[in-house]
Every structure is written in structure tokens, then in C-alpha cells.
């Protein structure tokens, strides 16, 4: 195992994430194109709206598989630490913002849609945390 690109687990991860990301973008474009702002919550609307969700479920599955398939225990630990930092940050932001929404209703609502992007941003914080505490590239 020479580097990230040479690691079979990361290569499989990339091969899974690229088509899932294309599916996500395509599904978002479809939903934007065919669901008008005042659309009724019928089966067609709900089906189109849930389509990008399939890609997100796929991303989560691919990330889980990465942890299972990474045989290099140090690289796996870096990934797990990134996931933990991202999860901690997401829980912190959502919980605190949720309390604000309850007790200070004037605060803008945080749409649930943003939870996953927020978690993905947390991965970058995880990379920084790894770099600061362990050196190296932090699992970037």
C-alpha cells in the first residue's frame, strides 16, 4: 500500500461515490425541473423529492463500506476519528440551533436538508483535528 490512490479500499470508495454523486446531482435537477413550488404532496412529488435521498443513503453505505474494507488499521483510525468529529459537530450545531428555535422563534429555521452537508463539512474539521493531533495529512 503506497498511498491513498494505491489503496484498494479508497479506490472502491471513489468508484462508488462518483456515480452516487452523479445520481444525486441528476435527481436534484429532476426534482427542481418537475416539482413546482406549489406542488401538491402527491405520490409523484414525494417520489421525485425522495430520489436524491437514495443517493445520500448510498453515500452513507459507501462510507460504512470504506471503514469495513480499509485493512490498514491506522488509516481506518484516521477515518473513524474524522467521522466522530463530524458527528460531534453536527450534533452540537443541530442541538444548540434546535434549542434556539424552540426558545427564540425569531431565529431562522435550520432545514433538516442541511444536516448531511453540515456533517460533510465536519469531515474537514476532522482532517484538521487529525493533522493537529497526529501530524501527516490527517486522512485527507
Amino acid at each position: 500500500m503506497t498511498n491513498r490512490l494505491g489503496n484498494p479500499a479508497y479506490r472502491r470508495y471513489g468508484r462508488r461515490m462518483v456515480p452516487l454523486s452523479l445520481l444525486y446531482v441528476g435527481a436534484i435537477m429532476l426534482a427542481t425541473r418537475f416539482i413546482p413550488d406549489n406542488a401538491p404532496a402527491d405520490a409523484r412529488t414525494i417520489g421525485l423529492a425522495l430520489l436524491p435521498g437514495l443517493a445520500i443513503l448510498g453515500w452513507i453505505w459507501a462510507m460504512g463500506r470504506l471503514l469495513v474494507e480499509l485493512e490498514d488499521e491506522y488509516l481506518r483510525m484516521l477515518e473513524v476519528r474524522k467521522f466522530l468529529v463530524a458527528t460531534g459537530l453536527t450534533l452540537a450545531v443541530c442541538s444548540v440551533w434546535g434549542l434556539l428555535q424552540v426558545f427564540a422563534p425569531a431565529v431562522p429555521k435550520l432545514p433538516l436538508f442541511f444536516v448531511f452537508p453540515l456533517w460533510a463539512l465536519g469531515l474537514f474539521a476532522g482532517v484538521l483535528f487529525n493533522r493537529l493531533t497526529l501530524g501527516g495529512n490527517g486522512g485527507a
Partner: peptide, 13 residues
């Protein structure tokens, strides 16, 4: 790293 079948980062760490 190659002898151990791990990454160079692992050996360094």
C-alpha cells in the same frame, strides 16, 4: 510498509 502491507503513514505514526 510494503513488508508489513500497511501504508507509509502507519509506519511513520
Amino acid at each position: 510498509a510494503e513488508r508489513l502491507d500497511v501504508s507509509r503513514q502507519s509506519v511513520n505514526a
